[in-house]
Amino acid sequence: MIFYILVCVISAVVTWGLAWATWKLSTRFRLYPSIRERDVHSTPTPRLGGVAMFFGILVAFGVASQVSWFRLVFANPGQITAILAAALIIVVIGVADDIWDLDWLTKLAGQIIAAGLLVWQGVQLVTVPIGGITIVPPVLGLMLTVGAVVLVMNAVNFIDGLDGLVAGVTVIASGAFFIYSYLLARNVGETPYFNLASLITAVLIGACIGFLPLNWHPAKLFMGDSGALLVGLLMATSAISVTGQIDPDSLQSGKLLAPAFIPILLPLAILLIPLLDFMLAVTRRIRAGKSPFSADRKHLHHRLLDMGHTHLQAVLIFYSWTAVVAIGVLSFLFVPWGWSLAFIAVGLVITTVLTLAPLGKKLLNRRNPGGAPLDLASTVPPIQGAPVSERKGSAS
């Protein structure tokens, strides 16, 4: 565990230092775009935070490569090289999009190339833990892997609309996934796949923690498309490293008594909010006859603001939804399934109430404008023929 903490701290410190330098340079040389109609912020803000995150991750991987404890991960250097090369492609595409606003086909092509690079070096789904263990045909595995990576990247990018949102959600979700992959590595035995997933997740958590101080509301620096797509790429890669290589039967022995569906359910749980927002956006845009990648101001975070939540409240609601689902699914590893379901159910009820609270306030205000005490007598229909004072319920 100490070595994972080490690379996490290195990633956080380097990212923070470079993010601060990026903010200063971007502000000095006015390296920021104009405000768009769909943007929530009102002050032009630099969007190159993803570059700082990438170099923080790169340095952390470099340090890890010199630690003998990670020997299994770096025994196949081609895989690590492919992950970092794919990350570089994504960052370059993201920066270009932030500067020149690329068309969606160009961005999609770059994402497919990056995902294909991962598959070429062996980061792909080869098994699916359904009904024991199912071998995925190579061609199908390639298509599923590329599709999953592209899907997750865009899903994460879609929710990147509020200060601190993506970074905070990633820390919570990846924290749960790190615990899972770390326990797998310890209980199932040494394996490069689970160690790789744990390393990627630890480094990603560090980069998000290091970036968050400059991205907290009001943000001085945005991660931009380069950062959001990078986060999605690494989250997808770590999930595929575990889900596509695990034998569920091995989880039923030893100390780790996990349900066989956890390898699939947990990645979906930690990506619940981004995937939900992505599906709603794509459906909405296709029904309107638009490109699924066209921008609009109807994402979930926009809707929370329109409901009446403050910027901070909307971000904390996203955090709470992510925490409830991710921690709830992870708890299947430690407590009886009934307790886990109870935790998830109670958590979802509480977060739903918090999410819909502004609607209840608006309803009360409509019924009682100005917040003055309701005059119940004024709501009673007047009695025909009665004096005016009696119609109003007056005591005079």
Rank of each mutant, 00 (worst) to 15 (best):
F177G: 12
S26N: 05
A314M: 02
A239K: 00
F178N: 09
V335T: 11
T145R: 12
I350Q: 01
R285K: 14
R186A: 06
L275G: 11
S65R: 14
H309V: 01
S174E: 07
G110F: 04
L356E: 01
S291P: 12
L234T: 11
T43Q: 09
D249G: 03
A202T: 15
P129H: 10
L265S: 09
A345Q: 08
G360V: 14
S238D: 03
M223L: 09
L184C: 14
I2H: 15
S389G: 04
L374I: 13
G370E: 06
T352F: 10
G116T: 13
T283Q: 13
L183Y: 13
H41I: 00
I327W: 06
F61E: 03
V119L: 05
W216V: 04
L356T: 04
S226Y: 12
A173F: 00
G161Y: 07
L102E: 01
K220G: 05
F158P: 07
M307D: 04
L363M: 14
T283E: 03
V95F: 13
L144N: 05
Q245F: 02
I262H: 00
F334D: 03
P218I: 04
Q121S: 14
L312A: 12
S65P: 02
L204W: 06
V346G: 00
A207W: 03
L271H: 00
L300R: 03
R285D: 03
Y180V: 13
V59T: 13
R30M: 08
A19Q: 04
T22F: 08
H309Y: 04
W16P: 07
I383E: 12
V136W: 09
A148H: 05
P137Q: 04
A185G: 10
V136Y: 10
D97S: 02
W321A: 06
N215Y: 11
I262G: 08
T355K: 10
V315Q: 00
F177L: 10
K220C: 01
T127H: 14
F293H: 08
I262A: 06
W321N: 06
A260R: 11
G164Y: 08
A228G: 05
K24W: 11
G370M: 08
L144A: 13
A75M: 01
W100G: 04
L105Y: 04
F222W: 11
V282L: 07
R303E: 01
N76F: 04
V203K: 07
I200Q: 06
D296E: 03
A357H: 11
D39N: 14
I99A: 00
I135T: 11
